[in-house]
Design a protein around this nucleic acid. Structure first.
Length: 361
DNA sequence: AATAATCACAACCGCCACAGG
DNA sequence: ACCTGTGGCGGTTGTGATTAT
């Protein structure tokens, strides 16, 4: 009897998002702002459930998301914050505003956790090794087994984990090496391979997806929808018409001229990015390779008279959010990188974390 | 060259909290 | 006080890409 299963509706689409869906969603959010995900379905005709739309936006389409390699600094922060906060990825992500919780979680699960586990095994003959033979199932913070072990055991393990994290952090701090350099302590076969197939920033992604999409479904490109041009040259221009329901799903965006747009995907290394992507009517598509960042500027042409004001308001809010998010980051950065204070403050925070967790019992 | 193993990451699922009726 | 809808979160899975055998 419980709740109906997630998004179980006839006709609700699952799986990877198509560029067309992305554009429709982005267009809708441009006009109405994020939130009210329920309305996205009714207003755009997207065959996606509200949750899926929200996730797509927050994890992928949202402006200001940085993708690809984690910097050494980010890695240190994640290790440190994970030790303090546990697997509270949303909380951790709030200190790294350019990263999504999903990204951080993935990075932790696929790389950092193994790295720390490795250190732990090297450090002492660890009984956890036995427990962790279900590799990938049990977290290094052992949250999954918390209910099965006594308070004392759990605290000891927590402290041990925090100690491990602290060690890793201090080692990382002492070796001021770029992330691509090998980590001295790790055997060669376990060196991090920081060659993420960077799922580049949205514009390029969409462009690439479009390429496949148009190849795979030429019918769509001619009858269901039309994408006549897409170019990225620090400005992006897209003309896309979703003809399934023009009044609802129409996207009609033109080249921004230095617009400080909502959809400016600014990456730290994008200043010299210049690439163009074009799609002709035959579906031929060209884009230079090896670009993983681009500014994605879109000027919308709203359908509603007052939506421009709303859009401006949203733009402003968005800016403010990004600005305010910098504050805790800066403080934390200072805390993390101030060698003189790091140890004492760290201890204080860890103490706080321990006393907080002790309150749970 | 073919196949298996591993990795990286997008997306889904289920649970929970909370607001509004 | 209870019910319902919605959004948020963390865990997990699916899948394409890459690497190893």
């Amino acid at each position: 009897m419980g709740r109906p299963p997630y998004c179980e509706k006839i006709g609700v689409k699952k799986g990877p998002w198509t560029p067309e869906e992305d554009i429709i969603l982005v267009s809708y959010i441009q006009e109405h702002g994020p939130g009210n995900w329920r309305n996205v379905l009714t207003n755009t005709g997207l065959l996606r459930c509200s949750k899926s739309c929200r996730l797509r936006w927050t994890n992928y389409l949202r402006p200001g998301i940085k993708r690809g390699n984690f910097t050494e600094h980010e890695e240190k922060m994640i290790i440190h914050l994970q030790a303090l906060l546990g697997n509270r990825w949303a909380a951790i992500a709030s200190y790294l505003p350019q990263r999504t919780d999903n990204d951080i979680k993935n990075y932790w699960n696929t790389y950092l956790k193994k790295k720390l586990d490795n250190k732990k095994v090297e450090g002492h003959d660890d009984h956890d090794h036995e427990n962790n033979h279900q590799e990938g199932k049990s977290s290094s913070s052992s949250s999954s087994s918390q209910s099965k072990i006594s308070k004392g055991q759990w605290e000891r393990r927590l402290q041990s984990d925090i100690h491990t994290a602290k060690q890793a952090l201090s080692e990382a701090l002492s070796h001021d090496t770029p992330s691509n350099k090998p980590i001295p302590d790790l055997p060669e076969e376990q060196q991090p391979v920081q060659t993420y197939t960077t799922y580049a920033s949205s514009a390029v992604n969409i462009a690439k997806l479009l390429q496949n999409w148009m190849k795979n479904s030429p019918k769509l490109s001619s009858s269901s929808s039309k994408i006549t041009q897409m170019s990225l040259n620090n400005n992006l221009s897209i003309s896309a018409v979703s003809s399934s329901s023009p009044s609802e799903g129409t996207v009609n965006v033109a080249t921004g001229q230095g617009l400080d747009s909502l959809f400016s995907f600014n990456s730290s290394n994008n200043s010299d990015v210049s690439q163009s992507v074009s799609v002709d009517e035959g579906g031929n598509f060209s884009t230079p390779e090896n670009t993983n960042a681009a500014i994605f500027q879109v000027e919308s042409k709203p359908n509603f008279p007052d939506s421009k004001a709303e859009y401006g308001k949203f733009q402003e809010e968005n800016k403010q959010n990004l600005e305010t998010q910098q504050v805790p980051l800066t403080l934390l950065e200072k805390w993390l990188l101030d060698d003189a204070n790091a140890q004492t403050q760290e201890d204080q925070l860890i103490g706080m974390a321990l006393s907080e967790t002790a309150d749970l019992f």
